[in-house]
């Protein structure tokens, strides 16, 4: 298992490097110019040339790319924002925990609501509960998160006055952003859980378990649910990545000073260090989440764990000279 984890961690290096090169290249070739953006109406030919030189933008593309990568690898330097001259790492340190907290809370809410509803819907197939849950899932899936966020703000913050409009100062201020982030994904989880559970419930071994006279609760939670969990875990894992990478809208609406608003600032002003730094961090998150999901498989499904272990045994046996590999 540990070999597998190390292997996966090593694989992350070329993936992250690839992402960085692609993002840097796209930023570089996108129309627009950070020097122009910084100068704004103060633009003159001389000031423009001087600023490009100062920022190193006058150098060829490959030199700029190499300088960036070398700075990152050798010093862990994410660069300095063109606007404000603030090191990107400093900003990220403040902002990442906010976005991560938002993401984690959203995933927890999504899972806590989505999984039980999906199980309920599957176990009571074609009942009132099933129709209600699937209709609810359909409706919330159809509402874009920004519409839900704005309507929710109007109702719960402005009209009813229960929640604050913006900020991250109290637990109340997290309610709406988390709800807006979670709602669409709840629908996904409900439908995924329902489908997965239905497939498992119809399996022979579940029929056997029932015929043995096991109580329904045991059949569902001990025999059916663990086997239905694998696709659900995959979706939940990728969700955190999606939520974190896609927090721009929610953070903008609720004025949350997280990574989303930082990316927006970077994109709007062609601030390459911000774009590259934030994308790097999000890529790390996504890779990390995928790794955690893969490891989680092993704990959920003994068959996968056994595969890892049998793979290791195979390798060990192959090293013994004169013996055939089974």
């Amino acid at each position: 298992m540990s070999r597998y984890i190390i292997k996966r961690l090593l694989w992350m290096i070329p993936v992250i490097l690839g992402v960085l090169v692609i993002v840097f290249t796209i930023s570089y070739f996108t129309p627009g110019d950070p020097a122009m953006s910084m100068l704004g109406t103060n633009y003159t030919e001389e000031s423009y040339v001087a600023l490009r030189e100062k920022l190193g933008l006058d150098k060829p593309f490959l030199v700029q790319l190499w300088n960036y990568l070398w700075g990152l690898i050798s010093r862990g330097d994410l660069g300095t924002s063109y606007i404000g001259s603030v090191p990107v790492a400093t900003e990220v340190v403040h902002r990442f925990p906010i976005t991560f907290k938002l993401g984690i809370m959203s995933v927890i809410v999504t899972t806590v609501i989505g999984v039980p509803l999906g199980i309920l819907s599957a176990t009571k197939q074609y009942s009132v509960a099933d129709y209600t849950v699937t209709s609810f899932a359909l409706i919330i899936a159809a509402i874009p998160n920004y519409v839900f966020a704005l309507l929710g703000l109007l109702l719960f913050a402005v009209k009813l006055g229960w929640l604050p409009v913006s900020g991250v100062d109290s637990w109340k201020s997290w309610v709406m952003p988390v709800a807006a982030n979670s709602f669409g994904f709840i629908a996904v989880i409900v439908r995924m859980t329902r489908t997965s559970m239905l497939e498992v419930i119809r399996s022979d071994y579940i029929r056997t378990a029932r015929s043995k006279g096991l109580r329904e609760r045991l059949v569902i939670w001990k025999h059916a649910f663990p086997n239905a969990l694998i696709p659900i875990v995959t979706v939940i894992g990728t969700q955190l990545s999606f939520i974190m990478a896609g927090s721009i809208i929610v953070e903008t609406i609720f004025s949350i000073p997280g990574m989303g608003t930082y990316i927006m600032t970077g994109i709007n002003s062609r601030d390459y260090p911000i774009i590259n730094g934030t994308v790097l961090l999000l890529s790390l998150c996504i890779c990390g989440m995928n790794l955690i999901v893969d490891i989680a498989y092993a704990f959920i499904d003994p068959r996968i764990k056994a595969q890892y272990e049998s793979g290791r045994k195979r390798v060990k046996k192959a090293k013994i000279p004169g013996k055939a590999v089974p």
Partner: peptide, 15 residues
Amino acid sequence: KYYADQSTMYMALEK
């Protein structure tokens, strides 16, 4: 206080 979205700022004012 900074608001990234104008309509959110208006709601904060209303509230």
